[in-house]
Every structure is written in structure tokens, then in C-alpha cells.
């Protein structure tokens, strides 16, 4: 049985739960079974925030992550929480500026200028969508174009263009990295 475990993590206020929800919706719409969980401690801005997905072709057994296939870390504060869940082949995407000491264990940490890119687009708050775009490109769990479609359905109409730009920018920086 193929099962994929994904984590979005960072600090409160970075919109990571929305990223997870968008990915979960896109996967469910394509026949996958998803279990999405998150910490329910009151996360104010700055504290650890995370949302996890377990994706399967049938109803998920254990719904919490035990060994990550893919993790997005947008803030140093979130590094420690994932240390014990990483494998050598875990696709680990970090924010180049905000994660100064990435987790050591994985062979390859993909440090991308995610928040920098978001700021460049004009709104740091779309860093979560930049990250989603990068993940779509790197993780191989869903067709990026169909994820983009779902994302545009779920974000408020007036922010569609901004989010589309953010998503595409994330894909592009990941693709560039892959080809490098």
C-alpha cells in the first residue's frame, strides 16, 4: 500500500494550515484518502505551527505522521519538531532566510528563498503558496497544474492573481533548483 506523509511547518501566522488544506482538497478531489492533523495549541504569531497529511489510496489507518516523505519548514522554530520524523530520502524544503540551522539528517535539504520571493511578489503572506508551488514541483505527489486549479478555487477571488503568481514562482524556483 502506498502511503505518503507530508508536513507543512513554520511559525504561527505563516498560513501553513491553509497550504495543507489546499493540498488535501486537491488530493481528495483526485480520489486519494487524506488524513490532515494539526497541533491545536493556541499558536500566536511566532510559535510553532504545523499541519500534517497522511495520504493513501484507501482509508488511512494511523492518521498521524510517523516518518515524513516530504516536509516544508519555513521557520527555524519548526526544525526541532520534525527531527525525529526525517529519513535520508525525505524531501526537505526550507526557507533559506528563516531557517539558519536546517535539520542535519536528510541527505539533501532544499533551501529556497521562499519568503524572499513572496516579499518580492508584494506580500510576504503568500509565502505559504510559494512553498506549496515548490512542494508540488518537488514531491511528486500530485500534478502541479491540478493542485494550482484547486488552490485558485479555495482562495478568495480578490487574491487569486496574487496566489497564482506565488504558486508559479514556487514551482519555478524548485524547477530551477532541480535542473541545477
Amino acid at each position: 500500500m502506498s502511503q505518503t506523509q507530508i508536513r507543512f511547518s513554520g511559525s504561527g501566522g505563516q498560513g501553513l494550515i491553509l497550504s495543507a488544506r489546499i493540498l488535501a482538497a486537491a488530493l481528495a478531489a483526485r480520489g486519494k484518502f487524506v488524513a490532515q492533523s494539526q497541533a491545536y495549541e493556541p499558536t500566536s504569531r511566532g510559535g510553532l505551527s504545523r499541519s500534517d497529511l497522511v495520504v493513501s489510496d484507501r482509508e488511512v489507518d494511523y492518521p498521524l505522521v510517523t516518518s515524513l516523505d516530504c516536509v516544508v519548514i519555513l521557520d527555524q522554530v519548526a526544525v526541532a519538531a520534525s527531527e525525529g520524523l526525517l529519513r535520508p530520502d525525505t524531501v526537505t524544503i526550507t526557507d533559506a532566510a528563516r531557517v539558519s540551522a536546517p535539520p542535519g539528517e536528510p541527505r539533501r535539504v532544499l533551501a529556497l528563498p521562499i519568503t524572499g520571493k513572496a516579499r518580492g511578489i508584494g506580500n510576504i503572506r503568500v509565502a505559504n503558496i510559494v512553498a506549496l508551488g515548490a512542494l508540488a514541483e518537488l514531491a511528486g505527489i500530485i500534478d502541479p497544474d491540478s493542485l494550482r486549479e484547486t488552490m485558485l478555487d479555495l482562495v478568495p477571488p480578490r487574491f487569486r492573481d496574487l496566489n497564482a503568481e506565488a504558486f508559479d514562482a514556487g514551482r519555478e524556483m524548485a524547477a530551477t533548483l532541480e535542473n541545477a
Binding site: R21, A24, L27, A28, K32, F33, V34, A35, Q36, S37, Q38, Y40, V60, P63, L64
Partner: peptide, 10 residues
């Protein structure tokens, strides 16, 4: 339990 109460599933 809380885990299932707050879990989102397909």
C-alpha cells in the same frame, strides 16, 4: 478522542 475529533479526513 481529541485526535479523531480534530482530524480532517476524506
Amino acid at each position: 478522542d481529541e485526535t479523531i475529533g480534530h482530524l480532517v479526513e476524506t
